[in-house]
Design a protein around this nucleic acid. Structure first.
Lengths: 225, 225
DNA sequence: ACCGATATTAAGTTATCATTAAGTCTGTGT
DNA sequence: ACACAGACTTAATGATAACTTAATATCGGT
């Protein structure tokens, strides 16, 4: 059930690193494009539209951060995954990287094992968000328009509400732990209180008017019509 | 409470770092043991058998790398997760660290947020094999859905009830001592009276309506259809 | 029949969730 | 720049299910 190969663009000025990462990614079935500086990275990114861009922070011509910002400014790269490679142990830089819109960063020297697992993790996360319309009995959940149809009623949910419902509905019956929900809907590093989830659950139940979310006390929530 | 708290051993010679990491891990429900040098780390690791060992690379007595190698040499620590903390930008050290068998490394200065998300990620990866659906004759115990099916009836158990039944059903026929049950379901450090187990057993028997738990007087309980 | 151990029941305690309201943040239109 | 609206988060309170305990009954082996 292999879909088409994921395209990965790697930009780094050290040929050795390019080689190592290219070798490992190829072995995993990725299609790899390489660039040796910021300008080349930008140009190749625009031309090949990769699924993932790996950027060394310190590069000639343009730094990884600059490239990232320029890419993110274009609609075509809004959803593209971006990973920074950084030798800088400075936390400030790392955080700034993430704020610029990177999805992860890996510190140098790079361990191929760690790098691969990060890449795989990112794509895994992406797959889950893949927009497809869910239909469970008389309920339709449409991620394109943030709309839920129950029978003939069209109900509009807010973003977080929708993402939460969508997550649960992806696997009806399966219990999602509060931590899983936080990770998937809010992100690994965002810290919000537990009660926040409850409030969103409540709004969903209220708006839908149908009892489709079951509480499993001490564990989490599950979708169940 | 979790099925069983994950034990984490942190070894670092800087008391501040120990405190910060301990605080954050405890908040996430981990059980934390600390050590201030390599020898102490080794000794406590052997005694407490943690699920995860966090090792500062630069420590008195023995370095983190040495501790890691010594641990990995023992069968008991083949599967234990190991993370290195390193302030060293030295490439050689880090690479050697990973070759020694560390699962990840985090560079200092440590951001608690980043550190936590790495730890959680490691355990998440490890957990993939844990939740499996048990089927014994016409009974199905599904931890993912938190449901027990007997024939066509779906029975909802409370958290402790479910965990208790799941534990027994993992090894049908095997007798679990009351102490084992307490450790697995309630955790090593929680103190509850013996009667508590009886009450939960009773609720399970009552809810299932099937006689699947046998009392072994003076010893414990076992699952048996 | 007696004793130690478990079963049962009911009542007490706690943890967790639901609900509400108020506060913060963000973006939009004037 | 301003204010307004909607989305999101937090905090406080109340409700309830889950859990624990304790008191009493029952069972099984000697």
């Amino acid at each position: 059930m292999e879909t088409k190969a994921r395209k990965v663009l790697i930009a780094d000025d050290e040929p050795d690193i390019l080689e190592i990462l290219k070798y490992n990614l190829s072995n995993e079935g990725y299609e790899v494009i390489t660039a040796k500086d910021g300008d080349e990275a930008l140009e190749k990114a625009r031309r090949t539209l990769p699924d993932l861009v790996v950027l060394d922070v310190m590069m000639p011509k343009k730094t990884g951060v600059e490239v990232c910002q320029l890419l993110r400014a274009q609609p075509a790269f809004k959803e593209t995954l971006i990973i920074f490679l950084t030798a800088v142990n400075d936390e400030g830089t790392q955080i700034k990287g993430l704020e610029t819109g990177a999805d992860d960063y890996v510190s140098k020297p790079v361990s191929p094992k760690v790098f691969l697992s990060r890449v795989n993790a990112l794509f895994r996360r992406l797959n889950k968000t893949e927009a497809r319309i869910l239909t469970i009995e008389n309920m339709t959940i449409d991620p394109e328009r943030f709309i839920v149809k129950v029978g003939e009623n069209e109900i509009v949910l807010a973003k977080k509400e929708f993402e939460l419902l969508y997550l649960l509905a992806l696997k009806p019956g399966r219990v999602f732990l509060r931590n899983e929900i936080l990770n998937q809907v809010w992100g690994n590093d965002v810290i919000v209180g537990d009660r926040t989830i409850d409030v969103h659950i409540r709004k969903i139940r209220q708006k839908l008017g149908v009892d489709c979310i079951t509480t499993v006390k001490g564990v989490g929530y599950k979708f169940e019509l």
